[in-house]
Amino acid sequence: MITTIVQFALAEPISLGEAAKRFRSSAPKYQKMPGLIRKYYIRSEDGCTAGGVYLWDSRAAAEAVYSGEWRTRVAQLYGAEPVISWFDSPVIVDNAAGGAITAAA
Rank of each mutant, 00 (worst) to 15 (best):
M1A: 10
I2E: 03
I2F: 09
I2D: 02
I2V: 11
T3G: 06
T3R: 04
T4Q: 06
I5N: 00
V6A: 01
Q7L: 15
Q7V: 15
Q7H: 12
F8N: 07
L10I: 07
L10P: 03
A11C: 09
E12H: 13
E12S: 09
E12W: 08
E12D: 13
P13A: 05
P13T: 04
P13V: 03
P13C: 10
I14H: 02
S15F: 06
L16W: 07
G17M: 02
E18V: 08
A19W: 07
K21H: 11
R22Q: 14
R24G: 14
S25H: 09
S25F: 07
A27L: 12
P28L: 01
P28N: 01
P28E: 01
K29T: 15
K29E: 14
K29Q: 15
K29P: 08
K29L: 14
Y30H: 07
Q31W: 13
Q31T: 14
Q31V: 12
K32F: 14
M33D: 06
G35R: 01
I37N: 04
I37L: 09
R38D: 03
R38K: 09
R38N: 10
K39R: 04
K39W: 01
K39D: 02
K39Y: 08
Y40K: 06
Y40E: 11
Y40H: 06
Y41H: 07
I42V: 06
S44T: 09
S44L: 03
S44D: 02
S44Q: 05
S44M: 04
E45T: 15
E45C: 13
G47N: 03
G47Y: 05
G51Y: 00
G51A: 02
G51Q: 00
G51T: 00
G51L: 00
G52M: 08
Y54R: 00
L55Q: 07
W56V: 05
S58G: 10
S58F: 05
R59C: 08
A60Y: 09
A60I: 15
A61H: 10
A62G: 05
A62Y: 01
A62I: 05
A62E: 00
A62C: 10
E63M: 11
A64N: 05
A64C: 07
V65G: 05
V65S: 13
Y66D: 05
Y66T: 10
Y66Q: 06
S67F: 13
G68Q: 06
E69P: 11
E69I: 11
W70T: 01
W70M: 02
R71L: 12
R73W: 12
R73T: 15
A75I: 14
A75N: 12
Q76E: 12
Q76K: 08
L77G: 12
L77R: 03
L77W: 08
Y78Q: 00
Y78C: 01
G79N: 03
E81C: 09
E81F: 12
E81P: 11
P82K: 00
V83Q: 15
V83M: 14
V83A: 15
I84R: 00
W86N: 00
F87T: 03
D88A: 06
S89T: 14
S89H: 05
S89K: 02
V91R: 11
V91Q: 07
V91K: 05
I92P: 02
D94K: 08
N95D: 15
A96Y: 13
A97W: 08
G98H: 04
G99Y: 06
A100Y: 03
A103D: 14
A104V: 15
A104Q: 08
